[in-house]
């Protein structure tokens, strides 16, 4: 089978829109600045993993179907309606899957001084944590950490990226909270 056929079949199986223009010369994926690697997201938060999604007790189900992240307005740590909806789902999942512990990561966009953003990320992570506690998740299963502006997921310097970076991400694990 030639490489062209391989990529067409792979794309068909995955049903990813990024594959509508496959690399017909089989030269590999060209990752320009801001490019999209169709393979990179397979196990990541935006990728699609059929096996995980099929099992509602899996971490994949938590991060993709329930939703592991919420967004914030500029310089704010208040939870909007959409964020509260996601957190209600997270709480439900954590109550059902009681072996899991969760670390809530707070993040900020790059518009701000380094120290302030660490403190702002702590506020955001804690707002999510307190909401989860209000929904019945035991405090002992939750921890928070702030990364400030140190871990952006979107790298452009305009609002489309900043909005993605102002986030709190709930990371679940079966291990110790440290």
């Amino acid at each position: 089978m030639n490489k062209f056929m391989t990529s067409v079949i792979l794309c068909g199986a995955m049903g990813l829109s990024a594959c509508t223009n496959p690399d017909r010369f089989g030269a590999g994926t060209d990752l320009g600045a801001g490019g999209v690697d169709p393979n990179a997201g397979l196990s990541g938060p935006t990728g699609i993993d059929q096996s995980g999604l099929g099992d509602p007790t899996s971490p994949q189900f938590f991060s993709q179907a329930v939703g592991d992240r919420i967004s914030f307005d500029v310089d704010q740590s208040t939870l909007n309606a959409a964020a509260q909806e996601v957190l209600r789902g997270q709480a439900q999942w954590l109550l059902t899957n009681s072996d899991y512990l969760a670390v809530v990561e707070g993040h900020a966009d790059e518009q701000g001084t380094r120290e302030y953003n660490v403190a702002l990320g702590a506020r955001r992570a804690n707002a999510a944590r307190e909401f989860l506690i209000s929904q019945g998740v035991p405090e002992s299963r939750l921890r928070t950490i702030s990364y400030g502006k140190e871990r952006p997921i979107a790298v452009c310097s305009d609002e489309s990226c900043y909005a993605q970076n102002r986030r709190a991400v709930t990371v679940i694990s079966l291990g110790s909270l440290g």
């Binding site: 740590s77 120290e115 660490v118 702590a122 506020r123 804690n126 307190e130 921890r143 928070t144 702030s146």
Partner: peptide
């Protein structure tokens, strides 16, 4: 446990450290 410490600076005699501590979302 549960605390995050950052933004440290020495006192002028080098014996003390002033810094920020975030606990329960408050710094």
């Amino acid at each position: 446990q549960g605390e995050m410490a950052f933004s440290p600076r020495f006192s002028r005699d080098g014996r003390q450290v002033v810094y920020s501590l975030a606990n329960g979302g408050n710094t």
